[in-house]
Each structure stands twice: as structure tokens, then as C-alpha cells.
Computed example of a mutant assay.
Amino acid sequence: MRAEAQRIMELQGARTQLGRLEQAIQSELGSLRAGVEPLLDEVRAGVAALFPEAGGTRLAPKEYEAQHEKLLQSLDGLEDVLEALQLAARSSRPGASAARGGG
């Protein structure tokens, strides 16, 4: 029972963090979010594979490690794209040129 409780906590934690990330992306990027949607799909799939819903099939250790590595690569790519889109979003906001010293 203790292992199952731990697994449920991990699942809820991973999904909660993913939800927070998606909310932050929407808040920060607005319509530019479309640029990260394919990467978010990869991250969602990785979280689902590593932390299956109750009754779902858990991965074998080697599969888990491979999926974990893939998820980390997806997160690295997402970080790079988010940084670029965040700069674009900030530069397109009213008053951005004044904040950069251009206005």
C-alpha cells in the first residue's frame, strides 16, 4: 500500500507540475503558445509514459530509463523554444521599445 501511495503522489506531482507549466506558458506567450505545442505534446506523452494513470502499465526499468532520457531531451528543447518565444512576446508588447531604451 505504501508503494502505491508513493506512486499516486508522484503521478499527481508530475501532472500538477505539467499543468502549472502549461498555465505559465499560456500566460506568458498567449497566441505564440502554438509554437511550443508540438514539444508540449512530447512532454505530455513522456509524463504519461513515466507516470501512468491508476491501473496503467508501468514501464520496465530499461524502458523507463529510455523514456526518462527522451523526456529530458524534450524538456531541453522546450526550454530553448520557450526562451526564444518569450523574447518575441516581450518585444511585441506595447512599451517594449521604451523598456529597451528605444523609445
Rank of each mutant, 00 (worst) to 15 (best):
E4Y: 08
A5S: 06
A5Y: 12
A5V: 14
Q6T: 08
R7A: 12
E10D: 13
L11G: 09
Q12F: 08
R15L: 10
T16M: 13
Q17C: 06
G19F: 03
R20Q: 08
L21A: 09
S27L: 08
E28P: 00
S31N: 10
L32P: 07
G35R: 09
E37I: 01
E37D: 12
E37A: 12
P38V: 01
L39I: 05
A48C: 03
A48D: 01
A48W: 01
A49C: 00
P52G: 15
E53S: 14
A54W: 01
G55V: 00
G55Q: 02
G56M: 03
R58D: 15
L59E: 00
A60I: 01
K62T: 15
K62I: 14
E63F: 03
Y64G: 14
A66F: 04
A66I: 09
H68Q: 11
H68L: 05
E69Y: 04
K70F: 01
K70H: 07
L71C: 06
L72G: 11
S74Y: 04
S74G: 13
L75V: 13
D76N: 11
E79H: 03
E79C: 02
D80I: 05
D80F: 03
V81W: 05
L82C: 07
Q86N: 13
S91V: 12
G95C: 11
G95Y: 13
A98C: 12
A98W: 11
A99H: 13
G101W: 14
G101I: 14
G102W: 15
G102N: 15
G103Q: 13
